[in-house]
Write a protein that binds this DNA or RNA. Structure first.
Ligand SMILES: [Mn+2]
Ligand SMILES: [Mn+2]
Ligand SMILES: [Zn+2]
Ligand SMILES: [Zn+2]
Lengths: 140, 140
DNA sequence: ACGTTGATGCAACTCAATTGCATTTATTTG
DNA sequence: CAAATAAATGCAATTGAGTTGCATCAACGT
């Protein structure tokens, strides 16, 4: 998945965010990533000489606060960001072996028939599975 | 839930772990906690008994490696430990608002039918829900 | 009681996250 | 288009969880 410069600018305008060069770059990197990326991984995708890490960091925060991006996982002390595709959120798989985070197709129905105050919380929650990915299972 | 000193010693013996004072203390704290605890929270629970943080840290690792405890969540850069109750693992709810992690009753099985290499990974995975807990929903 | 081996205490280190502040720049406004 | 304004950037410093090296101590099988 990719994003044109115009699409990115429109997206930012709709969120009342200024279209700066690093911000557009972050948007492009997130759009092209097949999986959620950490701050460090975004830096690597951008190439190390480009922009200040703190700037990229704050842009990820901004995009998240604006609802353009979201944190798909906090696992292993790293926030992993992805674009918030309009549709409802899909589940993610966090590998405890290699640390990778993968997007899973929507359709994972967490059948939760729970009464009481937790019902709403659970129904609106994002689903995350933690285990060993196929690659790590093969090695073990 | 609590644990007697004898039960703790037996549990450790079965795992080939020496029964040291800080280790027994960690075991007792985990046994009494209603929710998974971070390293820092375990230190706070131990309170007056002033053990070295690194010792407590390594004990949590040891207990995890021995299968006595497990990491219920990595959220927000904190590993949260709980005793590995014999039965299969239950899901957990991670609140993005206040950061608390709560144990959910088993039976909230997220059923996903997926083909291919991911099938096994998914079936053996632990389920984690991320959202806003009832308390945080009430404030918002 | 002894000796082996694991555990402890202390200190140092890594790395993601976070923040203060002076400077620059995108966007608004005249 | 140029000035005004509020936001964003670059740089540096700080926090906090996790992690590790090493000398000393202690659990426990013999
Ligand atoms: Mn995803
Ligand atoms: Mn639990
Ligand atoms: Zn893996
Ligand atoms: Zn909460």
């Amino acid at each position: 998945m990719s994003i044109t410069d115009d699409e990115a600018r429109t997206l930012l305008r709709e969120s009342a965010l200024r279209a700066t060069a690093p911000r557009l770059a972050v948007l492009r990197v997130l759009a092209e990533a097949p999986n959620p990326l950490s701050h460090t991984e975004v830096l690597e995708c951008l190439g190390k000489t480009d922009w200040d890490p703190a700037t990229i960091y704050r842009n990820l925060i901004k995009l998240r606060d604006a609802g353009v991006a979201l944190v798909a996982s906090h696992a292993h002390g790293m926030d992993r960001y992805e674009l918030a595709h309009g549709d409802g959120h899909h589940p993610h798989f966090v590998c405890e072996g290699c640390g990778r985070v993968a997007c899973l197709p929507a359709g994972l129905t967490a059948s939760m028939s729970m009464e009481g105050p937790w019902a709403t919380s659970i129904q609106n929650a994002m689903v995350q599975l933690r285990g060993e990915c196929p690659d790590c299972l093969a090695k073990a």
